[in-house]
């Protein structure tokens, strides 16, 4: 059926050579159904051809180009206007951002001022001295001092462990040659205890 339609189309549009045309005409004579289908197709085609040849009126035809040029111009104007609008919006946003940040900073400095008024002069002096002292200690402490502090922590820690872990288990721990084997001699509770001690000593 699709093939017949193609043949009809080709026949009506003059797309067949004389041999094919003759062949198709003979086919039409032989088959009544094909003949009927072709008659329907021809009728529809002449109707479509009728419509196909209708032209749009001249004024409208000419106005298409004018309208196109007008729209193109207005698009260019819109484009440049939207660029200006974008630039303007950006400037406004930057200004708003600037004023917002300055306003927030102003509020923060007011908070600091109100905090300062809450403390007396001597309190403020001692606070600044403490801060200066801790900064000074951090900067000036030597390696020897650090190892001294570590050994004090160590002594305290081992004393606490001695108090809390049973003696025979401690002997086992002290008898270990390889530190990496320590896991085998410690129970989960012992590990937790050691960590608790370390935390108490504020080492961790």
């Amino acid at each position: 059926m699709i093939d017949s339609e193609e043949k009809f189309f080709s026949y009506l549009k003059g797309g067949m050579n004389s041999e094919k045309k003759k062949e198709f005409e003979e086919e039409l004579l032989r088959s009544e159904n094909l003949n009927k289908d072709f008659a329907d197709y021809k009728k529809l085609h002449s109707m479509l051809d009728d419509v196909k040849n209708i032209r749009i009126n001249k004024n409208y035809s000419e106005s298409i180009i004018t309208e196109f040029r007008k729209r193109k111009e207005s698009r260019i104007i819109n484009k440049s206007f939207s660029k200006t609008r974008f630039a303007f919006t950006s400037i406004v946003l930057i200004l708003i951002g600037y004023f917002l940040i300055s306003f927030l900073n102003q509020e923060r400095s007011m908070e600091i001022n109100s905090l300062l008024t809450e403390f007396s002069e001597t309190e403020l002096e001692s606070l600044s001295r403490n801060t200066a002292y801790s900064v000074n200690v951090e900067n000036n402490i030597s390696d020897d001092d650090v190892s001294k502090i570590d050994s004090i922590y160590k002594e305290n820690l081992s004393a606490s462990l001695n108090e809390t872990i049973e003696e025979n288990r401690l002997d086992n721990i002290y008898s270990i040659n390889n530190v990496s084997d320590i896991d085998e001699y410690l129970s989960e509770n012992d590990v937790e205890l050691i960590y608790a001690q370390l935390i108490n000593k504020e080492i961790l």
Partner: peptide
């Protein structure tokens, strides 16, 4: 209103299709 076909007969044909 702005249909761009001049004569009525053509207009009707187009409308039908």
């Amino acid at each position: 209103q702005n249909d761009m076909i001049d004569d009525l007969e053509s207009k009707q044909k187009v409308e039908k299709i």
